[in-house]
């Protein structure tokens, strides 16, 4: 029996509909052998519940609205409330100013991907940090 696959939830918090980044990364992760659960638009409650039920290793948030701090904070608060701190690798991608990266990481985001990201860098980061 093959060992477990890396499972990733791709979620779009909020209502902004820029979808290219999420799709491009989803395809790249699938092509790298991961199981990609496409959550689409989800509020943070739906996102965390999906992450739980699907028992994913990684939560990827695609945010292009400029509201990244608000959504990431809500999400991490809820994860903490459920006693699941550090159980998921949280990645954030989208139109995020570089000067916000360190603050997001301090909050608990494992890595942030801005405009011009190469998909192989995301794949590598996940594979290096989640050993299956």
């Amino acid at each position: 029996m093959a060992d477990g696959k890396i499972r990733v939830l791709m979620s779009k918090p909020g209502i902004d509909g820029h979808w290219r980044g999420g799709i491009v990364i989803s395809r790249a992760l699938r092509d790298a052998g991961m199981e990609l659960i496409f959550g689409g638009f989800q509020n943070v409650e739906q996102c965390v519940e999906s992450a739980i039920q699907e028992d994913v290793d990684v939560i990827g948030l695609s945010i292009h609205s400029g509201a990244h701090f608000a959504y990431v904070k809500r999400l991490l608060d809820l994860i903490e409330e459920k006693g699941l701190t550090d159980q998921f690798m949280l990645l954030v991608g989208g139109v995020i100013p570089a000067r916000d990266f360190s603050e997001l990481k301090k909050m608990g985001v494992a890595n942030v991907y801005g405009p011009g990201t190469m998909t192989k860098d995301v794949v590598e980061f996940i594979k290096e940090n989640i050993k299956k």
Binding site: G14, I15, G17, S65, G66, A67
Partner: peptide, 22 residues
């Protein structure tokens, strides 16, 4: 903004962080 685009009022918590952001 994304709320006006999608026909959502600012009282809706799903979208409220995006009021005026885009």
């Amino acid at each position: 903004d994304a709320l006006t685009f999608n026909g959502i009022d600012p009282t809706n918590p799903d979208g409220s962080p995006e009021v005026g952001t885009s």
